[in-house]
Structures are given as C-alpha cells and as structure tokens.
C-alpha cells in the first residue's frame, strides 16, 4: 500500500426484525446477608461489591422499565398488554454461569411499565464480574410475521446493563502491569537493576519484592501518612522512567520499520498526539501521522536523539506531575 493512502471505515448492525432499545435496567440498592447495604455507582453502572465484605449472599434490588417506544416491536393488534416477558440475564464468564431471572411474577402479558425484582447472588457461585442485562422476550409466535419478530423466545427489546464486581478487577487488564520480581530467580535481570522493561509482548515494570521497604510503600492502602504520600511520589517517579522507555522503544521501532509494530506502540503515539505529553515534544496540533513520523526521525538521527532524550525527560516529568508530587511529599513529610 502506498504511504499516501488514507483509510476510513463504517459499519451498521441491524436486527432482521423490529427491535427497540427502550428497556432500562435500574438498580435501587443492594444488601449483604440481609444486613449491610451498599451504594451503586450510578455513573458507571457498577456495583462495587469487592469493596465490601465478607459476604455470602448479595441481594440486588432491580427495576426494569419498558419505555412506550417498545410498543413498536409488536403489531397493533397484539396489545397492550403484549405477549412478552421482561427478564434480567445474569452472566458470569469466570464461573460459567448464565441464566435469566424473570422480572415480576404475573407476566406475560406485559404492560409498558416498571417492574421490580430482587436478584440474589451467592458469592460461592461467582467470581470476577457478573453482567446484568435487561431483555424483553416474546412468549408467543407472532401471527403477523416480519417485520415483527415471528417466534416465541426471541428478544425484541433490550437496554444497557449493569456490571457487578464480585472481586477486584485484575490490575493488569488496565495498564502496563507492574509486578514484583524475585531477582534471585534465574532468567531475571541482575539484582542491581531495580526496574526494567521486559521485551515484547507484555511490558512490565519490575520492582524487587526483596525490597521490603519499597514493597510496604507500594502496598499501602492507607489514604494518609508517610507511606501513602511517598507512594504518590514514587508513582510519578516510576511513571517518568516507564514513559521514557516506552516512547524510546516506540521511536526505535518506527525508525526501523517506518511504523509501529504493536498496539501499545500505536497507543503511545496516540497518547503523544492527543495529550499534553506530546505538546512538549511536537507541535501541539500535530496529528497521529505527524507524531509517528517525527518520533521516528528524532530517534533515528544521533544528533537529534541527544536533544530528544532531554525533551522527553522534561515532557514525562510534566506529564506525571513529578515536580508537584515531590513538592507535596516534601511539604507533608518535612520534619
């Protein structure tokens, strides 16, 4: 493909019959073992159960509301009430568990209104995340046929779900995983190396688990005090080291091959192109392609590289707010 080609894509997904998105799943609250109640995160539609505990059973109070727009998926002569049933699908990938909870007990047929029920989850049967998804499902065949869903058992309407977090989401799904390494193990870098990046495909920051003091700091979940303050600063410090390495790695790949090799490298270029991180290194309005080209050029040319590394350290420090974190640390911990 010639370099001067621009690509674009578009897509359209469609159901083969009338389908409506007017089913709303609401969570009004949840409580554990008939006692302590928790509060849902309404912004992200998440129930952070992992922040509570220990518990054996959680009861989640849900409501399913059928919007008037849902009427359009049924022919005029079918209702209201309509021959369908609202359900909440419970799905947990990790424990291979998937089932539907019928909402309310006197359905079908249904009016377009709000139904309430309680979804009970036994902790022993779930791990990780559980998805709750509302659906409206036909309970009889449709005499009119298309464009209406013709068979019973077909979903004719749905809506956004909620995520139930039974356990802490695994850290390394969100970022470059930072892991403790025992450097005394073979195939590990020498002890002198306090941190490093391993090669493709998973970039890792390594902290020696023998450094008890550092481990204490990094493991501290406290919100105030010496260690949490130091931890905030160390995170900025590690951030600088890591970003410098990631950018240089990406730059050398671009210099060698003309483009990025891995998704994360494209991500690094994207980060540089869209965040203030890149403004210190490139034109602030440089687009992705420009940043990629420039990055390759500055890393490729030894005379440019010297300046670039200096600029890069500055940019990474600004980006991670290194100075502010250090200032805060000194401010709070000075004797």
């Amino acid at each position: 493909m010639p370099a001067n080609t621009r690509r674009a894509s578009a897509a359209d997904e469609s159901m083969p019959y009338r389908y409506d998105d007017g089913v709303d799943l609401g969570v009004t609250g949840f409580s554990f073992d008939g006692g302590e109640a928790g509060s849902p995160d309404y912004d992200d539609r998440v129930l952070p159960l992992h922040e509570y505990g220990p518990w054996e059973v959680v009861e989640i109070d849900v409501s399913v509301t059928l919007d008037p727009s849902v009427a359009r998926v049924f022919p005029d002569d079918e209702g209201p009430p309509f021959p369908a049933e609202p359900v909440v699908v419970v799905d947990c990938e990790e424990t291979q568990t998937r089932y539907a909870v019928s909402v309310g007990d006197d359905h079908p047929p249904v009016e377009l209104e709000t139904f309430e029920t309680t979804v009970e989850l036994e902790r022993d049967l779930f791990r990780g995340t559980v998805r709750l998804t509302p659906r409206l499902v036909r309970t009889e065949p449709c005499a009119s046929g298309l464009p209406y869903a013709p068979n019973e058992g077909m979903r004719v309407a749905g809506g956004g779900g909620w995520t139930v977090r039974v356990d802490d989401p695994p850290e390394d799904h969100d970022g470059f995983p930072f892991v403790y390494r025992d450097f005394s193990q073979e195939s590990m870098p020498p002890v002198e190396l306090a941190h490093s990046l391993s090669r493709h495909p998973e970039e890792k920051m390594m902290i020696n688990d023998q450094h008890e003091g550092i481990v204490d700091v990094m493991q501290s979940g406290l919100t105030s005090g010496f260690r949490p303050n130091l931890k905030r600063f160390l995170k900025a410090d590690f951030g600088v080291m890591l970003w410098v390495q990631l950018v240089l790695w990406t730059g050398t790949t671009v210099a060698e091959t003309g483009t990025t090799e891995f998704d994360w490298q494209a991500g690094v270029v994207q980060e540089l192109a869209t965040h203030e991180f890149g403004d210190h290194l490139f034109d602030s309005d440089a687009d992705y392609d420009t940043v990629e080209r420039e990055l390759g050029r500055r890393v490729d040319d030894p005379s440019e590289l010297r300046d670039f590394v200096g600029d890069l350290f500055e940019a990474a420090q600004l980006y991670t707010e290194y100075g502010r974190q250090l200032e805060r640390f000194v401010d709070r911990e000075a004797p």
């Binding site: 159901m15 083969p16 019959y17 049933e85 359900v87 699908v89 998937r98 089932y99 539907a100 659906r135 499902v137 869903a149 068979n151 058992g153 077909m154 979903r155």
Partner: peptide, 8 residues
C-alpha cells in the same frame, strides 16, 4: 443473535 437462549 435473535433467540434469548436463557429463556429456553
């Protein structure tokens, strides 16, 4: 993609 498996 059209049948709601969990109700069957």
């Amino acid at each position: 993609s059209t049948i709601q498996l969990e109700t069957r």
